[in-house]
C-alpha cells in the first residue's frame, strides 16, 4: 500500500436507511436490556480506545440529566476469558472490531451460552449472517475508517437513540413470546448452547447455559474440555459445536 492519501470517507454519508433501521432496533434492544438491569460490556481488541469511549458515554453522559448506565470497557490480553468471567445472563456485549477478529468471533459464538445479547460495530467485509444479534456495519473497505470518526458516530448515535427510548417507558418491557404451539423453541428444550465449565466426571459435566449452571450428560460427546461448546437437548449433550465452523 502506498502512503496515506488525503481524502477520507465521511462515515456520516454512509448511514443509509438500512443502517439507520439497524441502529434503531439495536438501541431499543439496548434500552430494554438496561431497563431490565443489564450491564453493557464494551470490547475493541484492535482499537481499545473505542471500547473506553463507548463505556464512558453511558457511565458519564455528556448531556446533563441523562441517566448514568452501567457500561464497562474490557481490554487487555485473553479477552474471551475476561468476558466470560464478567458477563451475566441478560447483559449486552458490544464489540468494535473487524469481522476477522478472532477474540470477538469467539465471544459472539459463545454469547448464547452466556445468555447475553450482542452488538457488533465494524467496517469492511461483514461478519457472517447471524453472528451477532445486531450488526452495525459500514461497508466501506477503507482500513483507515476506524481512525476517521465513523465508529465514533455510530456509538454516539447508539447512545443518543438509547436515551430517546428511555423517554418511552411503556415500550421498555420486552414482549413475552407467546407459547401456543405444541413444540416451542423458547420453552421446550430444543438444542440449547452450553459451554463446559468443568470436564466430565463419569460422563456428567458442569456446563453454563443462558439459564445458568447445570450438569449435563456428555457420554455422547466425551471427551470434553473446559470452554468447549456443546448442543444440549433434554439434559444430554448431543454434539460439539466447532469453534470455527463458519470460517
Amino acid at each position: 500500500m502506498s502512503g496515506p492519501t488525503r481524502e477520507a470517507t465521511s462515515a456520516a454519508a454512509l448511514i443509509d436507511d438500512g443502517l439507520a433501521a439497524d441502529l434503531a432496533a439495536a438501541s431499543l434492544m439496548l434500552a430494554r436490556r438496561f431497563a431490565a438491569g443489564a450491564t453493557l460490556w464494551c470490547l475493541a481488541p484492535s482499537w481499545e480506545p473505542h471500547a473506553n469511549h463507548v463505556a464512558v458515554e453511558f457511565v458519564h453522559p455528556v448531556v446533563v440529566g441523562k441517566k448514568a448506565l452501567p457500561a464497562v470497557a474490557l481490554t487487555g490480553p485473553d479477552l474471551v476469558s475476561t468476558v466470560r468471567v464478567s458477563v451475566r445472563p441478560g447483559d449486552v456485549v458490544v464489540a468494535v472490531a473487524s469481522a476477522a477478529d478472532p477474540a470477538v468471533r469467539s465471544v459472539m459464538r459463545r454469547s448464547p451460552a452466556w445468555g447475553v445479547s450482542t452488538l457488533w460495530i465494524g467496517s469492511g467485509p461483514r461478519p457472517p449472517a447471524g453472528s451477532a444479534d445486531h450488526v452495525l456495519w459500514l461497508d466501506d473497505p477503507d482500513p483507515r475508517l476506524p481512525a476517521t470518526g465513523g465508529f465514533v458516530l455510530l456509538y454516539h448515535l447508539l447512545w443518543e437513540l438509547t436515551h430517546v427510548c428511555f423517554e418511552h417507558p411503556g415500550l421498555l418491557s420486552e414482549p413475552v413470546p407467546e407459547c401456543t404451539d405444541e413444540v416451542c423453541v423458547t420453552c421446550s428444550d430444543e438444542g440449547r448452547l452450553a459451554e463446559v465449565i468443568e470436564p466430565a466426571i463419569g460422563g456428567r459435566s458442569l456446563v453454563r447455559t443462558a439459564e445458568g449452571e447445570e450438569t449435563v450428560d456428555t457420554m455422547l460427546v466425551d471427551p470434553v474440555e473446559a470452554a468447549d461448546l456443546l448442543l444440549v437437548h433434554a439434559g444430554m449433550a448431543i454434539s460439539k459445536v466447532d469453534e470455527e465452523l463458519d470460517r
Binding site: A13, I15, A20, L23, A24, L28, E160, V164
Partner: peptide, 18 residues
C-alpha cells in the same frame, strides 16, 4: 412508530455530523 422515529433521527444526526 418509535423505531421509525429513531431511524429518522439517526439519519438526521448523521447528516448534521457530515
Amino acid at each position: 412508530s418509535l423505531l421509525t422515529d429513531l431511524a429518522a433521527s439517526a439519519r438526521a444526526k448523521a447528516a448534521e455530523s457530515a
